[in-house]
Amino acid sequence: MIAGITVLALCAGAFLLRNGSTSHPPPQPSAAQAAQAVGGTGGRGSGAAPMAPSPPDRIRVPAIGVDAPLTGLGLTPQGSLDVPPPQRKNLAGWYEAGTTPGERGTAVVAGHVDNAEGPAVFYRLGALVRGRTVEVARRDGSVAVFTVDAVEVYDNEDFPDEKVYGAAGRAELRVITCGGPYSERTGYKGNVVVFAHLTSTK
């Protein structure tokens, strides 16, 4: 399993650190978008049949204007997920040693919320709401379409590894960036996580 410090490298808040209080922080999910008591994010409920493995090439989230290429990510020596190059603000990454998006299990995509120049690929991730879709274009020519089950924010010190990265009996997706309270000294103090499951294919 990926270590609990997975996405801390995403969370420096370079843009806000550079621009101070004159900048607007990214949107954060409301309590209304948290996992529901029944169904929720545990891999239960209906969904499309899992797809054969295929590396992903692109992620689209129409509701928040995301249309970005994907690069493979590995782990750092400390066991945390590596991150895309911060200078490429419209680039996201997927954990290529794990499940491919659309395959049975839990696939993980991560990206920066900002860089030194301004908002990055997942700046508006916290504005996503349940029921919206996330599309992942795959190298085999297919598109995996996921429906959002929940959008939650966690403090870095209380990040729920098993809930986010644990095995699933259906095809699920996690999309992660940083969020939560912001400190000019340390940057963002948490992570925004989108939980979604496969509902159709193209």
Rank of each mutant, 00 (worst) to 15 (best):
F146W: 03
Y123T: 11
V113M: 07
V83F: 01
P160E: 09
A168M: 14
A168Q: 15
V143Y: 00
A144H: 07
A116W: 07
C178A: 05
T147E: 15
A68Y: 08
A107N: 05
V145I: 15
G93A: 01
V129N: 08
V175S: 01
L125I: 13
R132I: 00
Y165V: 06
R130N: 15
E103F: 08
D114Q: 11
N90Q: 14
V136E: 06
A171P: 14
D140I: 12
Y95E: 11
P86R: 10
V66H: 01
P84E: 06
L91H: 07
Y123P: 13
R130A: 14
L173K: 03
V145E: 12
K163F: 01
D82H: 07
L125V: 12
G72M: 09
R138H: 11
A110L: 01
W94P: 04
D82G: 15
G79P: 13
V113H: 05
A127H: 06
R124N: 14
T106P: 07
Q78L: 09
D82N: 14
D67M: 02
A68Q: 03
A171S: 15
G118I: 11
L173H: 08
Y95I: 14
G105N: 09
A150M: 09
V145N: 05
A116S: 11
T100V: 10
V151G: 00
G102V: 14
L125A: 04
G131Q: 14
P101N: 10
D67W: 00
E96D: 15
T100R: 03
E162Q: 12
Y123A: 13
D158C: 03
W94I: 05
L70K: 04
G131F: 06
A92K: 04
L173G: 04
P101D: 10
D114H: 11
K163R: 15
E96Y: 08
G111V: 04
F122T: 02
